[in-house]
Simulated scan of single mutants.
Amino acid sequence: MPTEQAPLGILGGTFDPIHYAHLRLAQEAADALSLPRVRFIPAGQPAHRAAPQASGAHRLAMVQAALAGLPQFECDAAEVSSTAPSYTVPTLERLRGELGADRPLVLIMGADAFLGLASWHRWRELFALAHIALATRPGYVLAEQALPAELAAELAQRQCLPAALAQQAAGGIARFEMTALDISATAVREQIRTARSPRFLVPEPVLDYIEAHSLYR
């Protein structure tokens, strides 16, 4: 299948800063779900969390530095340059306008984010725009009883095998296991704030950028 028609992975986030757990999530999703490319989309004004500590320009530059030399990964700068709040459905609508109605889009998210999906802006419309790739830790069981009833119903109806994601443009939910890496942007920022080194938690080009611009101090 030509790359321009193959499923495209979508990984959004504040990336404040981007770190190795983000990259590993993208890599394992690509491997498990046969995604030739994964697009990272830094949020401009995230709607569901506090404002990022680093500016959009800095966060975008760090993502670009982290992805340099990794041809399977690409960076989308559109959200950072927008003044509107970053909501997932409008982002996917923009991508549909760019990529067409037929290309499979695969929104990558962790189990914690999925548990809160029913609180997202226009969340039911997600399924008409993209598949969901649900990352869980090895041995983790996502109990449908713990989900809101409306979300449990969607999961029961839409669960599919990874191979099915290439067969239609949107609407499926495929699970995959990912290596548990206890790395968070909050922990990285705290290490920097307290004059400890986050080396080996973030890629070297990102660390160089943080030091060069005195971020998170």
Rank of each mutant, 00 (worst) to 15 (best):
G44N: 00
L33T: 07
A66S: 06
F114V: 00
W120A: 10
T88K: 04
L67W: 00
D76P: 03
L23M: 04
A77M: 12
A77I: 03
L117H: 09
L35C: 07
G56P: 08
S81T: 14
E93N: 11
V106Y: 02
E93K: 15
R96F: 05
H131I: 04
T91Q: 09
A57P: 00
R49P: 09
H58K: 11
L70S: 15
H48C: 06
M109N: 04
D76H: 10
Q72E: 11
L60C: 06
G69E: 11
L129R: 01
L129W: 00
A54M: 07
I108E: 10
G100S: 04
L70C: 14
T83C: 04
P85Y: 10
Q45T: 11
G116C: 07
I108W: 04
E79M: 12
R122D: 05
L99A: 01
L129V: 08
T83H: 04
A61E: 02
L92Y: 07
F127E: 14
R103Y: 01
S81M: 15
D102P: 01
L126F: 12
L99F: 12
G56F: 06
L25E: 12
L92Q: 11
T91E: 12
W123V: 05
T88W: 06
G56E: 03
S82V: 02
E125H: 09
D31Y: 06
A68D: 09
S81G: 12
E98W: 05
V106E: 06
Q53M: 04
F40I: 10
A43G: 08
L33P: 00
A68W: 12
S82Y: 07
A133T: 00
R59T: 02
Y87T: 14
A77F: 09
P104T: 08
G97V: 06
D76K: 08
H58T: 08
A65E: 10
A43R: 02
T83D: 12
E93C: 15
A118G: 08
D76G: 09
C75R: 01
R39I: 12
A128R: 11
V80T: 06
S86H: 03
D31V: 08
Q72S: 12
A113H: 05
D112R: 10
P104W: 05
C75G: 01
R122H: 14
R103C: 10
R124C: 15
S82W: 10
I108S: 07
T83V: 15
W120F: 09
M109A: 07
G100T: 07
A84Q: 13
A78N: 14
D76A: 13
G56H: 07
Y87N: 05
D31G: 04
D102F: 13
R37P: 08
